[in-house]
Design a protein around this nucleic acid. Structure first.
Lengths: 190, 190
DNA sequence: ATAATTTATTCAACTAGTTTAATTTTTTTT
DNA sequence: AAAAAAAATTAAACTAGTTGAATAAATTAT
């Protein structure tokens, strides 16, 4: 199991000695998923925090009319889980699906709690990570309100040029909160 | 300076002994603001994390057409700051204004960093807090996409019945991402 | 208390984005 | 390589929410 990418990422935010990195490594197991395979389905409990080594995931919900709402795209070196379900051990209201063949590292809730006790610096690591995630969510809410769909689309391709290649348009539309039809119209304009 | 409310809130999430609570208390200063006074203005750096003892605040941005977008309402026992500006020490793009006379406890960035070293449990405390905030932001994004303005309004008054009393309608409209005119039309419907 | 200012309401014309459905293009499967 | 399935495009009718402007109601200041 190759945890290099994970350790590298941890080291970007906190200092760790060899003992600590070894302790950390022991708690993770690796898993591969094929394209279209689900990491989590609605009504299941999200049992693991997952660090993406390879591949790309989509987190989405399904509303009462059966429409999908994409909330998050996640790629290499990001963490992915339904935090609410993971923390509360209650059924999730989200789906997480692999958009490409993928490889991840997983840690269970109990193990993460143990790990926090053994390597308290990880409290800091995750605090920083979630702070950043929170900040960008807030910015996203701000932009959803103040920008038109067209502006949001151009901002998206500018911020995530790689996603545009990797991810089907209809999912990008559902991330932007518009219909695939309207996205297609916007693209035609230029 | 009365830090009871702060300590009570901390104790809900982490265990602290008397030494620790005393250490914590020393780092905070208290401040009062009158209604309409600003805690933070666009282009200023957000120097403090603020714990609300009394009163109600509104965090908003102003778009290129001069329209206000309300992102957060915050009341007693919540933390309030522009996290991005606070962490990066760069100018904020948000305004934070008191909607009522208010009393807060403040801690500066350097002091908070010191405090994290002295009382590492606070890393955990803030991690948990921000996790929760992140989760509710994500839910909010989800709802903004899947619900109509009318549904969002009814959800809002159901979730925050107190806010409806305390906060002018036009701010609630700007929080919901609609015009005051349209909110007024929705209210008329029932 | 009165005047001045801000906030909320109402209405009608308007527009950004949706819906439905048919057609074309691309991707996946065999 | 062909067939099947999924994704993207196009067009036209539609609707949720906006805009602007005028009026009424509620707050704030003098």
């Amino acid at each position: 199991m190759d945890t290099t990418k994970l350790i590298e990422h941890l080291l970007k935010h906190v200092q760790l000695d060899n003992n600590e990195t070894e302790t950390i490594e022991k708690y993770f197991t690796s898993k591969t998923l094929r394209k279209k395979e689900f990491l989590l389905r609605t009504n299941e409990v999200c049992r693991t925090e997952n660090f993406i080594l390879e591949g790309c995931f989509r987190t989405y919900s399904i509303d009462e009319n059966g429409f999908e709402r994409t909330l998050i795209f996640s790629v290499e070196s990001w963490w992915i889980a339904d935090l609410l379900s993971f923390l509360t051990e209650r059924p999730s209201s989200y789906n997480i699906v692999a958009l490409e063949n993928a490889k991840i590292l997983q840690i269970k809730k109990n193990d993460l709690e143990k790990l926090y006790l053994e390597v308290p610096k990880l409290e800091r690591y995750f605090r920083i990570l979630i702070q950043n995630a929170y900040i960008s969510q807030l910015e996203r809410i701000n932009q959803n309100y103040s920008l038109t769909a067209e502006q949001r689309y151009h901002l998206f391709i500018q911020k995530h040029p790689d996603f545009v290649q990797r991810i089907p348009q209809k999912h990008i539309a559902s991330y932007l909160g518009i219909t695939p039809v309207f996205l297609s119209m916007l693209r035609k304009k230029r």
